[in-house]
Design a protein around this nucleic acid. Structure first.
Lengths: 97, 97
DNA sequence: TTGATAGGCAAGCCGCGACTTGCCTATGGT
DNA sequence: ACCATAGGCAAGTCGCGGCTTGCCTATCAA
């Protein structure tokens, strides 16, 4: 669980996606894709973004809802609390690699 | 800067090292090495740990001080605050189903 | 129904990161 | 002086992760 969280955060593109969803929730795959290209100047394919979103969803950092042929993505920052409670406030370690 | 921070946190062994230094600061390379092997049951060489510490030091998550032929390592959790201020602060906490 | 749109699946390429191996420097005890 | 200890450096192996390519399914509008 913590493994997937930190793995998801390891990639700079995925962090950009989190930034995007933080400032504007409920975006579809194509919205995120075009915004990353235009606003952030990143050149990546739709599938690349799709795979990034899958990793973020596996880490529970992004929640999705389907409506018709659209799939909307929302940021879910709560798992980040674990990082704070692990080292910023001393607490027993909990990792299972 | 943020790049090195998240890259450092991506590896489970490095997280273990942070846990170790959190519960007992000022350890040398060999101390960390033996503790990881005995307490956590990890099998890694001295050089592996040394390289991990270098990554953690580059991310400013570990501060070191030399004394004679010893090099002591201490946890420096302050960079983790950036994670909180990046996604946790801007958006208030959500529901937890 | 047809075509366009939104998204998914799977195989493959490729570079980076984790780890090892071998050798080197330096400090300190005796 | 000698040798053990503490650590560093560099090259090499190897698997995994990011990305592409190609094709497939599903939904909606005309």
């Amino acid at each position: 669980m913590a493994d997937e969280l930190f793995r998801a955060l390891a990639d700079p593109t995925r962090r950009r996606i989190l930034d995007e969803l933080a400032e504007r929730g409920g975006q579809s795959l194509f919205e995120i894709c075009t915004r990353l290209v235009t606003k952030h100047g990143l050149g990546l394919s739709r599938q690349a973004v799709s795979q990034h979103l899958a990793v973020l969803e596996a880490a529970d950092l992004v929640r999705t809802r389907r409506e018709g042929r659209y799939k909307f993505h929302d940021l879910h920052a709560q798992p980040l609390e674990h990082i704070v409670t692990r080292w910023l406030r001393p607490s027993p370690p909990e990792d299972t690699p």
